[in-house]
Amino acid sequence: MLGFLKRFSRMGDSELVERIAKGDSAAFDEVLRRYQPRVYSFACRYVKDRDEAADIAQETFLRLYRMASQYRPEAKLSTFLMQIAKNLCIDFLRKKKPVLLPELPESPAGDDTAVQAGHRQQLEQVRELVQRLPAKQRKALVLRHDQGLSYAEIAEALETTVSAVEALLVRSRRTLRERMDF
């Protein structure tokens, strides 16, 4: 059994993927052994949620298994896997419902309900204004303020530069300030 495992550990990535395409589960296990920690770690840093990162890592390898026959050895397997993981992370972040502002706390007895109603109205107006921003500005704003991503992480998610992210955030904040009527 040990000799069998050593044989797989010496195989190149493209040969392993070729064997996976033919249904070889031992080759798939070897790819998991080599790359699962790296893919999981990447997803953890990207989505900042261990459970979601585990799901993303699992889905990454399921996609490799399904798409093994489409893999082209010109690309390194690690690059191929990380691109799948990155796309899954971006999809997760896009689907996650943005909550840019916290909900107002319950008012203690005696608070002015008219003031509280005004705050709720302002929150709703801000949420509506954010939804009306151009898509890239909205995504940058949500990734920065809701997800807490760095400018570099946002640039990677939006496939742009850090300076472009800075410009997107400046424009989105300026637009929000101009449109707010309170």
Rank of each mutant, 00 (worst) to 15 (best):
99 V>S: 11
77 L>P: 09
106 E>Y: 04
135 A>C: 10
119 H>W: 07
128 E>Q: 02
124 E>A: 04
74 E>D: 12
124 E>L: 00
95 K>F: 06
114 A>R: 14
73 P>F: 00
53 A>S: 08
65 Y>A: 06
56 I>Q: 05
86 K>Q: 14
52 E>S: 15
66 R>L: 00
114 A>M: 12
86 K>R: 14
103 E>P: 10
95 K>V: 03
69 S>N: 11
109 A>S: 15
55 D>T: 07
136 K>N: 12
52 E>K: 15
124 E>N: 03
137 Q>L: 05
88 L>F: 06
104 L>A: 12
106 E>S: 11
89 C>K: 03
59 E>Q: 08
120 R>Y: 00
79 T>E: 09
56 I>Y: 01
123 L>I: 05
104 L>H: 05
89 C>S: 10
64 L>N: 01
108 P>I: 03
37 P>E: 08
88 L>G: 10
116 Q>G: 03
103 E>T: 07
69 S>I: 01
121 Q>E: 15
111 D>W: 11
94 R>I: 08
53 A>N: 03
116 Q>W: 06
127 R>G: 04
107 S>R: 08
105 P>M: 00
40 Y>M: 14
35 Y>C: 02
72 R>G: 07
124 E>R: 02
93 L>R: 09
132 R>L: 05
52 E>F: 13
61 F>L: 05
79 T>R: 03
108 P>L: 11
69 S>V: 02
80 F>A: 01
82 M>L: 14
138 R>M: 02
110 G>E: 01
63 R>C: 01
